[in-house]
Design a protein around this nucleic acid. Sequence first.
DNA 1: GACCTGCTGCGGCGTG
Length: 750
Amino acid sequence: MTAKIRMTSLQRSAFDLLAPPVQRWIWQQKWQSLRDVQEKAIPAVLAGGDVVISAKTAAGKTEAAILPLLTRVIASNRESGGFAVLYVSPLKALINDQHRRLEAVCEACDILVHKWHGDVAAEAKARARRRPSGVILVTPESLEAMLVRRGSETAYLFSALQAVVVDELHAFIGTERGMQLQSILNRIEVECGRERIDRIGLSATLGDMHLAAEALRPGGGEKVRLIDGNDQGNGIRLQIRGYSLGAQRPDDTQTEAVRDDVNRGGEDFGIPSPMADDLFRFLRGSRNLLFAGSRQRVEVCSDLLRGMCEEQRLSNEFYPHHGSLSKSEREEVEVRLRDDPRPTTAVATTTLELGIDIGSVESVAQIGPGFSVASLRQRLGRSGRREGNPAILRVFVAELAADRGTHPVDRLKLDLVQAIAMVECLRMGWCEPPIPRGLHLSTLIHQILALIMQTGGIRPAAAYKVLCERGPFRLVDRGMFAEVLRCMASAETTLIEQAPDGLLLIGKTGEFLTESHEFYPVFATEREYRIIHESRVLGTYPLDSLLAKGETLIFAGRRWKILEIDDVARVITVRPATYGKPPYFPGSGGLIHDRIISMMRDILTTSDEYAYIDRAATAMLQSAREAYHALGLDRSSVVRFGSGVMLFPWVGTRKLGTLALACQAREFETAQYSHVIELQDCDLSSVESFLDGIANGDVPDERVMAARLAQPNLARFDHFLTPELMWSVTLRERLDLDALPELAKSLVSS
DNA sequence: GACCTGCTGCGGCGTG
């Protein structure tokens, strides 16, 4: 009877389109109605074709895709003969969550749901492979392994697919891993002789739905249906808080003396003590996420806050969470957040941005402006998930105290202004769109090897067709593809060889690479030490670190003394200690979008007020605006400073870097700050004539520029490429030469 | 001025 009443409230909705077992399951869940995104997505998914579904975190996207897909599987009435739904997810942890979530509804429909990733027992996989049916939840790497190891079974496993679901679509867009996934999905379609297998992309954070559609179906984005759920959240409460750095800093000799005293170590890592006090005050006693920006700052910050708990004789509530911590260390924090009633704040890097199930938190805090609006949006989505509670986000920004900031870059308070710019973008609903411009030749090398393994040998023309014409490597023309093949077949590399009949086969080095399980991921990873305390692995530490026996270390939120370093086994053994030095992790900066930097200029130019910034931040913004005018930036973006000249192009990282390289190619001594280029020991007129030249098309030789570019971020197989191909990659992916003349023009005319 | 992700097949050995 209760079922009947609920059916009435769901009347004339997408609910009616679902298969009876799915409807029964919905009644059992006691849902009062379908969510907006589900109402819209169900008919679209039932109709077939590609669909992108975008909606807030926790708005029921998974069900929006899966319920109609189960309906389609039931209607198709196929017992076995292959998997019906392929669900690809970027994290094993997400697959485990989704598997738990989907088991009941699939059981109600009498449809099997398998999880398939590196931690799943080989036996369970063998069982699924013997009788493939239902839904399979898988990572791109495990899917790659299936194709590479059992290429001949591909058609048997996947010919009956109704659809492919790509979870967290944004996590794949524009990345090496995303290229690999697009290529794998295409290889499956080709191998199964299917023109198109429906693709359904799910995401909470899409800057531009049309570009996301193109990422889901390269070359066919215009035919993808876009579903944008508009479930209203519970509102947002947002604040930016400003803090002064180095206000009462001791002079340098004293600083040296107290450097080892880690109790006051926050200041050196951008956390002045008033900020630490406020973090403690806002976060203690409830459940929160604190995004600290880097692994080092996560450790410093959790150490600081743990110390404050100890000082007040409270049990600790602050736990670090980042990618160098072991799985067990991280899981302890996740479980405590999800299932433990005690107040807990996880101090994290981006590890807790994606939808790992940690329940709802009260608030989200962030130190510094961060690198992207997309990331800010993901973070915000982690709070305010409980009915009636708004999402709370506090951004903590430290800037040098007024009396210490004499350099223009310090006087403009660029971190604070960037934080405001990002929040303004967030409020406007904008976030960074994917920019498909990379050649991804490293991943192309990987896919050529994988395709040869899958097919047992393939002709160059056929490989080109699969990977570059039909597949995602569309910026690679025939000539470049042939060059890549020549690189791979050369006497030095021997990744592949060509049989007399023209078939491409795996070469000697290629065999070595592909026989290892390390072959499946396309991203590069570093070699590391494991840090161990009494047989418990705490995490991993970079190999090139300068640690020595007897030194101390903050790691996993505790303090340690190093007992032993075994360079052969790559193990660091530790015991608890009272002191610890902050850990060091190497890294290189992120790319900031043009729009954010141009918004920063608008903020400095206007006198708009922002209700969400605190009093200290308001005063800082005021002083930044005064500095902007005092420096003459309202009249010109090229200003004298000391014995040199400063350029303020107000563009994103890629264009700024390209301009800096152009300056270096013309023998200027340059220093690059956040969003500014300083040219040392030169006069204004020489800079102006240089810019005039560029504005009129006199751009330095691209090879001279590319040669000056440091290459810290090589992709996994880049070292197999010739210098010529590497230049092509660099020019396309890291520089923006086309933008130079326009950029120079705007600098000289302003 | 940064972060994150992933992994097969098989041989050998111990235990019930």
